[in-house]
Design a binder for these strands. Structure first.
Lengths: 210, 210
DNA sequence: CTAGATTTGTGAAGCTTTTCACAAGCGGGT
DNA sequence: ACCCGCTTGTGAAAAGCTTCACAAATCTAG
């Protein structure tokens, strides 16, 4: 039933879900028009995005808020808990680990791993930092499906490869390199410097045109 | 000379620049093929991307590494210093503030602003946290061009609007909402939860197909 | 100076995503 | 029961991005 779905559609689905949370109404409905307004897109786009997954609106009325939310959660795979491990216990790792939205959305941190002997054995929240020599063992033992990779660029590829070998299914990568992993393992990159560069490009470009 | 440049091209330019740093050679050259290999793209794509900005390769030879680097830096607006302010001194803000790659790439933090009275006046590195009531004043005084917005979602829109009013030219937004600002002000969103959702979608989708 | 081996720059083709536009379906009012 | 206003779902058109393929340019060797 589902052909290949554009990356951009997936991003928008997340947005729609976020927007729906603003409509806490029982039994209320929402139109593609309203959803578009809150998501900086168009009504046609909203309908096309949703139509990839079946048709769950009512003509003349719109979408039932609670039903649409359930459906989106199921589509995005958020109707279950994902066990994740944080690899790299630096500043970024710490900030992410303490970010409450993770757990709230079904992403449960079950392990923290670092290579620094000074950090191994210390406790963060309810987790004790494990050494990276134990990486595979920890990932397998705890059935980790996702890792948040927040290690220096030099170490990232090796950690990624070992994690995939240990059965990890997806990687959220903060290291500023392109990881080489089998195509079955999705990788999402978060690269703040690149985002800043996109900003300075846009501004410079606008100034040049002026 | 420059028509509209695809967002995806800009991202790749950043990658090329990052790759070039690996080729620290004086006077060396690099072909589109080599650059493509390091960037998970194709040689044709590399050439097309660069051709948007003129032609600075030599046929039969490739691109001069140092020249290409200079050119990319200039295109991306990295041949100068960008003054940025951090608004929101929470975990994420702290992690970013201490991230050395920022300064190394020409992004200089010149102010930190927060609304928490307990934080105002405390010192981070060489900066004293200012109160958000002083936002406009601080941004103007220090000629801030970019802000890193790391405040709770509820506060983000108001801060963004005030910052734009105070002359900010671009926003790196960590708050999980779409900001409504004038089109001349570029906004880049960093939304970790959305990236995780893209991962769980991809995995769920693959499992469904199987 | 010529031949051969490379590699760029770029129209054109191919593919993907977005936008358009409208028939079909639903609900409320009379 | 029927009409009217509204909103979805969706082919088809338009726009946008990537890949192809090849002429033109450059270098090396003889």
């Amino acid at each position: 039933m589902t052909r290949r779905i554009p990356e951009s559609t997936v991003r928008r689905l997340s947005h729609y879900l976020r927007s729906l949370e603003g409509f806490a109404t029982e039994g209320g409905t929402v139109s593609s028009e309203e959803l578009a307004a809150r998501g900086q897109t168009t009504a046609a786009q909203v309908r096309k995005d949703l139509s990839h997954f079946g048709s769950f609106g009512k003509r003349g009325l719109g979408y039932r808020v609670d039903e649409l939310r359930d459906r989106l959660e199921s589509i995005l795979g958020m109707d279950r808990v994902w066990r994740l491990a944080l690899v790299g216990a630096g500043r970024i790792g710490l900030a992410l680990f303490e970010y409450p939205a993770f757990r709230a959305r079904g992403y449960e941190s079950v392990a923290i791993i670092d290579s620094d002997p000074a950090k191994i054995g210390t406790v963060w929240g309810d987790l004790t930092i494990r050494g990276s020599n134990e990486l595979e063992e920890v990932l397998r033992e705890l059935d980790v499906e996702l890792i948040v990779l927040a290690v220096p660029a030099e170490a990232a590829q090796e950690v990624a490869s070992r994690a995939v070998e240990a059965g990890v299914k997806g990687i959220l990568n903060f290291a500023p390199i392109r990881l080489d992993v089998p195509p079955r393992v999705p990788v999402e990159d978060v690269n703040v410097v690149m985002e800043l560069e996109a900003l300075s490009f846009a501004i410079t470009q606008a100034e040049r045109d002026a």
